[in-house]
Amino acid sequence: MSKHFLVIVATVGLLASLLSCGNGKPALDNPSRGEIVIAADESFQPLVTQLTSAYSGIYPDAHFKVIFRPEQEAINMMLQDSARLVFATRVLKPNERAVFDQRKIKGATEKIATDGVALIVNKANTDSLITMAELQRIFNGQISQWGQLKGGNQSSPITLVFDNNNSSNLAFVLKTFNIKDVKGLRIFTTHSNREVIDFVRKNPSAIGFIGVNWISDSDEPLSVELAKDLRVMGVSDKINPVNRNDYFQPFQEDLGMQRYPLRRPVYILSRETHPGLGGGLINYIVRDAGSLIIRKLGLWPRTPYDRIINLTK
C-alpha cells in the first residue's frame, strides 16, 4: 500500500469526522459550541445583546446570529424554522402550537423575567403622572388633549408613539385596554425603540411606549445617553390617587413587587429538538449568572442568582 494512498485515506477520514456524526449528516451543535439564529422583538435588543454576548464570552465557540423583528414576525421565523429561539412577551397561540404538533416538535417555553412598558415624555413636559383609567380613556378616544388629564398643563393634543405596527409594545397595550380598532387615535409608529426616544425628545406633546431595558441600565453609556432629556411617567392603577406615592415606574422593585401596572413577562420560546446551544443559553439565563444581567438591566429575573460570599476575619 503506497504512502500516497494512506495520505488520501487519512485526509478523507479526517474530513468525514469533521463534517458528520457518523451518519453523513452535519454535526449537531451542543451547549458550548455551534451557531444558531435567534429572533427577538426589538424592544428587547439591549437585553438579548448582553445575554448572548456574555454567553459567547464564556464559550468562544458558541455563536448567535440575532435578528430583531416585530414580535409576530419573530415568532413566525421560528415556526418556519428560520430561528431556533425567540424572545417574546407571550406563549404560542393554539394555531401556532399546532404547527409544532404537526411536525412532532415538542418545543419549550421558559419565562425568564418580568419587564415593563415604559411611558416616556419630553423633559419639558411636567405632566409625568397618569392613571390606568386615564390611559383607558385615551385609547378609547375619550381623552385626546393633555389638558383633559388630571393636573394637565398643556393644551396640545396627545400623540401616542410606538416602535412598530406589529411590535410587542403596541400589542401589549392594546390587549391591556381591550382596544380592537385604533382608527381615529393619534398614533404614530417609528421603526425602533430608539426612534421612539428621538421622536419624544423633539415633541413635547408625545407619549412614547418603549421597553424599559432601553433606558434602565445605569452602567451602560448608551442607556444613560438615551435617558437624557426624558421623563419616565409614573402610572397608578387607582382611579383617584391621593399623592405621588400612588404612582409607580417600570423599574426593578416595582416590577418585582407587582406594583407597576404595565408589567409583562419575558419568555424564551424554543423549537430545539436536541440538547443544543439553545438549551445551553436558556439554562445559563434561568439557572445561572444570566439572571445577574437581567437584574443589571433593571428587569426582575424569574430566578434570582444567589451569590455566595465567604467572610473571613
Results as ranks from 00 to 15, higher is better:
residue 38 I to R: 00
residue 129 L to Q: 03
residue 185 L to R: 12
residue 44 F to C: 01
residue 167 S to R: 04
residue 244 R to S: 14
residue 16 A to G: 15
residue 219 D to T: 15
residue 97 R to P: 02
residue 284 Y to F: 15
residue 109 T to A: 13
residue 300 W to G: 01
residue 214 W to F: 14
residue 188 F to A: 04
residue 297 L to G: 09
residue 53 S to N: 13
residue 181 D to W: 12
residue 134 E to Y: 01
residue 180 K to L: 09
residue 171 A to D: 11
residue 138 I to P: 00
residue 44 F to N: 03
residue 133 A to R: 04
residue 255 L to M: 13
residue 12 V to R: 00
residue 290 G to C: 13
residue 306 D to H: 12
residue 179 I to G: 11
residue 114 T to C: 05
residue 216 S to R: 00
residue 255 L to W: 10
residue 163 D to H: 09
residue 284 Y to V: 10
residue 114 T to I: 14
residue 51 L to V: 07
residue 51 L to K: 04
residue 212 V to R: 00
residue 236 S to Q: 07
residue 280 G to S: 03
residue 198 D to I: 05
residue 196 V to K: 11
residue 33 R to P: 01
residue 306 D to A: 14
residue 297 L to M: 14
residue 130 I to D: 01
residue 171 A to R: 10
residue 35 E to L: 03
residue 308 I to L: 13
residue 291 S to R: 02
residue 282 I to R: 06
residue 221 P to R: 02
residue 299 L to H: 04
residue 15 L to I: 15
residue 8 I to L: 15
residue 283 N to R: 08
residue 307 R to T: 12
residue 235 V to R: 06
residue 88 A to V: 10
residue 68 F to G: 10
residue 208 G to C: 11
residue 99 V to F: 03
residue 188 F to H: 10
residue 173 V to E: 07
residue 310 N to D: 05
residue 240 N to T: 06
residue 309 I to V: 15
residue 297 L to T: 11
residue 77 M to C: 05
residue 299 L to T: 04
residue 28 L to T: 03
residue 19 L to N: 10
residue 146 W to M: 08
residue 268 I to G: 05
residue 44 F to K: 02
residue 6 L to M: 09
residue 164 N to K: 12
residue 97 R to Y: 05
residue 8 I to W: 11
residue 152 G to R: 05
residue 98 A to P: 09
residue 200 V to L: 10
residue 106 K to W: 03
residue 267 Y to P: 05
residue 225 E to Q: 09
residue 72 Q to M: 14
residue 67 I to R: 13
residue 105 I to Q: 08
residue 308 I to R: 12
residue 183 K to E: 13
residue 311 L to P: 01
residue 74 A to M: 12
residue 169 N to H: 07
residue 138 I to T: 02
residue 12 V to W: 01
residue 296 K to S: 07
residue 62 A to T: 09
residue 53 S to V: 08
residue 62 A to M: 09
residue 18 L to N: 03
residue 255 L to D: 06
residue 45 Q to L: 11
residue 91 V to F: 11
residue 171 A to H: 07
residue 59 Y to I: 03
residue 57 G to D: 05
residue 227 A to Y: 06
residue 21 C to L: 10
residue 91 V to A: 13
residue 99 V to N: 03
residue 197 I to K: 12
residue 296 K to D: 09
residue 99 V to Y: 01
residue 267 Y to W: 08
residue 101 D to I: 08
residue 255 L to V: 11
residue 100 F to Y: 14
residue 89 T to Y: 08
residue 304 P to I: 05
residue 34 G to P: 10
residue 14 L to S: 04
residue 234 G to D: 00
residue 10 A to D: 02
residue 56 S to C: 06
residue 293 I to Q: 07
residue 284 Y to D: 09
residue 275 P to V: 07
residue 43 S to P: 04
residue 166 N to Y: 14
residue 192 S to G: 13
residue 159 T to M: 09
residue 79 L to N: 01
residue 133 A to K: 05
residue 142 Q to G: 03
residue 3 K to A: 15
